[in-house]
């Protein structure tokens, strides 16, 4: 049975799309047939981050409105056979995401895929609520920063009250946190909330910690999910998070300052 996973945060700019792309690609690398859907109608960006912007013909709204078939809109990733991208519309507004239409499309996707990853828009308006409504699991992307933590708390509350599982009194959405843009050096200097602080404040299980890393910008520059960069600390941290999501035990990595070798110090580049 396919699982619907929403990547959400409330706050914008914390790394939702980067995470949705990396997470979906990570699940595909682990052998699961995965589709990642852009729910950010009007502000399409997943296609760019996934590097398939020139292959978009039909979109999510076309399929909801019956103007295109699902297989016409799905874009198969060129790097991994298990991975598909479902882009959204750039021209419509968020209201075009009708709940019954989304439900129909998700039900159709469930037949073919193991995981359906939904990349939520920022905010707590219609688009974000629609993205989380059908979720079985949620990945809350949080930065170690006050406004992000507060908004995460808000979205956790919404998942507990407004998701379909909540409305139907089913087993609650499984909610886990992914702490991104973590800078261990600043944490050590007392300038940044620690993993433990954020875990204690939000009191939800931790899926992983992604260190702030140059490789994330490099990945989006080139339209490659960061997990395909095997040398990148962020990419490896995402793969750890995917493994934990699949129920495996993994030690936390990249949460203590990296000791720079003299070579690295001189020649830079992490």
């Amino acid at each position: 049975m396919a699982k619907v996973v929403v990547v959400t945060s409330g706050k914008g700019g914390v790394g939702k799309t980067t995470t949705a792309a990396a997470f979906a690609a990570g699940l595909a690398l682990r052998g699961y047939k995965t589709v990642v859907i852009d729910f950010d109608v009007g502000l399409r960006n997943l296609d760019l981050v996934m590097g398939c912007e020139r292959r978009v013909v039909f979109d999510f709204i076309n399929v909801i409105n019956g103007d295109a078939k699902l297989n016409q809109a799905l874009i198969k990733d060129k790097r991994n056979d298990n991975l598909y991208i479902f882009p959204t519309s750039q021209t419509r507004d968020k209201e075009a995401l009708r709940r019954d239409g989304v439900e129909r499309v998700l039900d159709e996707l469930r037949e073919d895929f193991d995981y359906i990853v939904c990349d939520s828009p920022a905010g707590i308006e219609h688009g974000a609520i629609t993205a989380l409504y059908f979720a079985d699991s949620a990945v809350i992307v949080t930065n170690p920063e006050v406004s992000s933590v507060r908004d995460s708390d808000r979205i956790i509350g919404i998942l507990a009250s407004k998701s379909r599982r909540a409305e139907r009194n089913q087993e609650p959405v499984s909610v886990q946190m992914l702490l991104t843009r973590y800078v261990p050096e600043r944490v050590n200097r007392g300038e940044m909330l620690t993993v433990e602080d954020v875990k204690e404040i939000l009191s939800i299980p931790l899926l992983g910690v992604i260190p702030e890393s140059e490789s994330v910008l490099r990945a989006s520059n080139t339209g490659t999910p960061v997990v395909f960069d095997e040398d990148s600390p962020a990419g490896r941290a995402y793969m750890d998070a995917v493994a934990r999501f699949l129920g495996e035990q993994r030690e936390l990595r990249f949460v203590t300052p990296e000791r720079k070798s003299l070579f690295r110090f001189i020649f830079g580049r992490a």
């Binding site: 507060r150 944490v187 007392g190 940044m192 602080d197 404040i201």
Partner: peptide
């Protein structure tokens, strides 16, 4: 050593308890 993270933690705890 900056203590700003500790301030952030306390402020968050209070505001979230309220909310």
């Amino acid at each position: 050593r900056s203590e700003s993270a500790a301030i952030a933690r306390e402020r968050l705890k209070i505001v979230l308890a309220h909310e």
